[in-house]
Design a protein around this nucleic acid. Structure first.
Lengths: 207, 207
DNA sequence: TAGATTGTTAATCGATTAACAATC
DNA sequence: TAGATTGTTAATCGATTAACAATC
């Protein structure tokens, strides 16, 4: 009855786990999966899986469970893994070039089409088939291709000014890896990625 | 009155943001910071900052706010950035070697003391001063040094067996980067890092 | 049929927000 | 003093959990 699509934010973050698990179960020959099965593998309560799946409009059958392929497809679609969005990455240092080398973007529907930096020795080169341009080229390229999302991996002391340049260039969403709080207009979305926070949470359980 | 240290999990994840912001404010000459100031910069409600800081036993003064240096110290201590824990990393491929090259671990109190792989061409080499050993050496080294936490960056198809090897070697916490649900004993803590989930959440705001 | 499982409705729990007296 | 800010207590909100009828 709660028909308008609604899933909690924690629920949304659980979806990839369900997908990963069910993908394996399908390989093992399962056609259907129950919330009980998923719950057992992931150490969750069955009801929470039912609620999450209800939230993305996946309908199960009593006694049978959920169709495994439907589940995989609906999650993939809901997460946007079936579309392809183009991104830019600004700051090709340690972390930036590591991300450029990382091949996980493609299967999640993202393609980094250009990297930008101010370091002359890497401008003009490629990392993992992605060309590195001078930072000056950023506004033109973003505007021309109507790019909306950028990855920010510059050193902390340049994060703010670089973010401003990205915003002037039409970027609306910034995935911010620098350990800095960005001061940006209301309409700009920023996701700060604090890579080590989850490792820290893990550690807190032992000390 | 709520004296036993308690902060919500979302609150714990906000602490690094407060720290990053206040560090900058201190550079600008601030000696004290109010919840109102922090809130304005981070787009949060002041009361939430007061609750979080109360949760880590930081006491402010009416009209003045919180002592900026106390705030920085208490957050750093609470997050464990002042201690140093040793880690191993298993799977030195794309992502694994990227993490080895990443220099952000140190300032968060972590040191990767060894990488492990089965690829003969990289065994015996170093990445960013971290030696790469054969996977066979893992149990001995972990037991000898009583290591508790490991980073798992092997391909999905080897994630489960590798996790089992880590557990046999005494590892209690696994930071799992493979897109796989690990089947592990009750007492083992797993933090699955789905790097791209926050990027996906960012994208969902535009489509 | 009997047992397992869904999906609905209600109860609980925990985090966020609101209100405000105390106070520097 | 007057205004800003903390910290407490209560209210709200949203996510999780419980209970259970419907059903394959």
């Amino acid at each position: 009855m709660n028909s308008p699509m609604h899933i909690s934010l924690p629920g949304l973050k659980r979806l990839p786990k369900y997908h990963a698990l069910v993908k394996n179960l399908v390989l093992d020959g399962h056609k259907n999966v129950s919330s009980t099965t998923i719950a057992k593998h992931l150490n969750l309560e069955p009801i929470i899986i039912r609620k999450d799946l209800e939230g993305i409009q996946l309908i199960g059958k009593p006694k049978i469970g959920y169709n495994a392929n439907d589940l995989l497809n609906i999650i993939a679609t809901f997460m946007g893994w079936n579309r392809m969005d183009e991104l830019i990455l600004v700051g090709c240092g340690d972390l930036g070039s590591a991300l450029l080398r990382y091949n996980g973007f493609k299967e999640r529907g993202f393609k980094i089409i250009a990297g930008f930096d101010i370091n002359q020795t890497i401008i003009g080169t490629e990392i993992n088939d992605c060309p590195i341009f001078s930072l000056e080229k950023l506004p033109d390229l973003c505007k021309r291709l109507h790019l909306k999302i950028g990855i920010l991996t510059v050193p902390a002391e340049h994060a703010q000014e670089t973010a401003e340049l990205m915003i002037e260039s039409g970027i609306l969403g910034i995935w911010n890896f620098s350990p800095t709080a960005l001061d940006v207009p209301e309409y700009i979305r920023v996701q700060r990625e604090d890579l080590l926070t989850s490792l820290t949470i893990l550690r807190k359980e032992f000390i």
